[in-house]
């Protein structure tokens, strides 16, 4: 993985996302030995301060431990209020997320409301990359993506 990521960086990647999609299966006490320690080793072998994003679905209880792996960004799934995670993690760690992807299958109005709510909740706190809490689904509607893009790109922090 180290050689592969180095090759991606050399080829021009601005950031790397590590998907620990099944990290959430691991018993809490084994999570470090089974997964996190290898991620830490990978991040340590990449250029210093290169942005690595870690996405591990279903690991809400492990987010604090993840913030000590050297990654710059933690991608949070949709099950946790992002504001709460913001309060738990060091300010030097950026957060990515975490709209429930199923909303994208519903209506543009719902997407506008929920995306707006998430933006308001974070209120421009530095270190937020807007994303879904998991991949967008095949059933998602184009109108919902349009509503999402309009809402996020048109947003301004309230004074």
């Amino acid at each position: 993985m180290i050689a592969y990521f180095r090759a991606q960086i050399e080829a021009g990647a601005d950031a790397i996302q590590i998907f620990d999609s099944w990290g959430g299966l691991i018993a809490g006490g084994d999570y470090n030995a089974a997964s996190l320690c290898w991620i830490r080793e990978i991040v340590a072998a990449l250029p210093k301060d290169f942005p690595v994003i870690l996405y591990a679905k279903g690991t809400a209880a492990q987010l604090v431990d993840q913030s000590f792996t050297g990654v710059k960004v933690i991608s949070v799934d949709w099950t946790v209020p992002l504001r709460t995670v913001r309060e738990q993690l060091p300010r030097t760690i950026a957060l990515q997320g975490n709209l429930d992807p199923v909303l994208m299958n519903l209506s543009p109005e719902i997407v506008r409301n929920e995306a707006g709510r998430l933006l308001a909740e974070m209120n421009g706190a530095p270190g937020h990359i807007f994303n879904m809490g998991h991949g967008i689904m095949p059933q998602a509607r184009i109108e919902c993506m349009e509503a999402l893009v309009d809402t996020v790109t048109g947003w301004k922090a309230s004074p």
Partner: peptide
């Protein structure tokens, strides 16, 4: 945003 520097709105991409 990755570096936790302030920006006028969050960047957006979708998994």
């Amino acid at each position: 945003a990755c570096a936790c520097q302030p920006v006028s709105r969050p960047p957006l991409w979708v998994m």
